[in-house]
């Protein structure tokens, strides 16, 4: 965003952007759409910053006529409205494409508490399988996550798969995540929730087979005393 310097830094940044929690190394279409939106906006912002700073630098020359019609209406009003409309349209378009919709997607449940997560999915035998801090999902297909909270507000976020959604006591929120291929993805609580906030991490395991046949010690790792109310 600092114009030219940031453009020069681009290759360095691209190389440095990888990481298990990086929104810039997407591993599914939802996160990829948003990452694409980011790079487009970054490019636009860099151009605009250079433009404004260049105009500013040119202001230090000899006085020259400046007409309000050009600066106020032309630049301030119409130019900014045009740019903003384009950005807004792109945002709405991406937003519509990544929303959860009624298409029979697999639904899992994420319940947040101070400080950890209890996830629930439907096992091969139709029974509910619960696991603490490990979410099982199918790979290559959309998964809707129902997000709830036990005590205070938390936020469910798997940056490589999708944006975040808050877990709010008394509410059930639905978000859509998609993982392109099987593997493990890192997730965390993004809303400040007290002393254990920094360590409120979890993993998402995307399986090629769904529902997965879990080894006995993988399944139902949840604390049996914890009541989970979808």
């Amino acid at each position: 965003m600092r114009g030219l310097p940031s453009l020069l830094m681009l290759p360095l940044m691209l190389a440095a952007c990888d990481g298990p929690l990086s929104a810039l190394s997407p591993r599914g279409p939802v996160a990829a759409e948003i990452a694409w939106l980011w790079w487009a906006m970054l490019a636009g912002a860099a151009v605009l910053t250079v433009l404004v700073l260049a105009l500013l630098a040119m202001g230090f020359g000899a006085p020259r006529p400046a007409r309000a019609r050009v600066w106020i209406h032309g630049m301030g009003l119409w130019f900014s409205v045009a740019v903003l409309t384009a950005v807004l349209a792109a945002g709405l378009w991406v937003g519509e494409r990544i929303l959860p919709r009624d298409d029979g997607a697999v639904t899992v449940h994420a319940h947040a508490w101070q400080w950890g997560w209890t996830f629930t999915h439907t096992g091969p035998d139709g029974a509910e399988v619960r696991s603490d801090n490990l979410l099982h999902i199918p790979a290559g297909q959309p998964v809707d996550v129902l997000v709830t909270a036990e005590d205070v507000i938390h936020s469910f976020w798997v940056p490589q798969l999708a944006g975040k959604l808050d877990a709010i006591p008394g509410r059930t929120n639905r978000t859509r995540i998609v993982a392109d291929s099987p593997g493990t993805y890192a997730g965390l609580c993004a809303e400040f929730c007290g002393l254990g906030h920094a360590r409120m991490r979890f993993n998402v395991e995307a399986h090629a087979e769904w529902p997965p046949l879990l080894a006995a010690d993988d399944a139902d790792t949840a604390d049996p005393d914890r009541e989970v109310r979808p």
């Binding site: 929104a23 906006m41 945002g91 990544i98």
Partner: peptide, 18 residues
Amino acid sequence: LTGVMLAIVPFNWQAHDT
């Protein structure tokens, strides 16, 4: 300009609270 980015909902879902 980053404020305009944050006003764009899908991007906000990633960047919010970071």
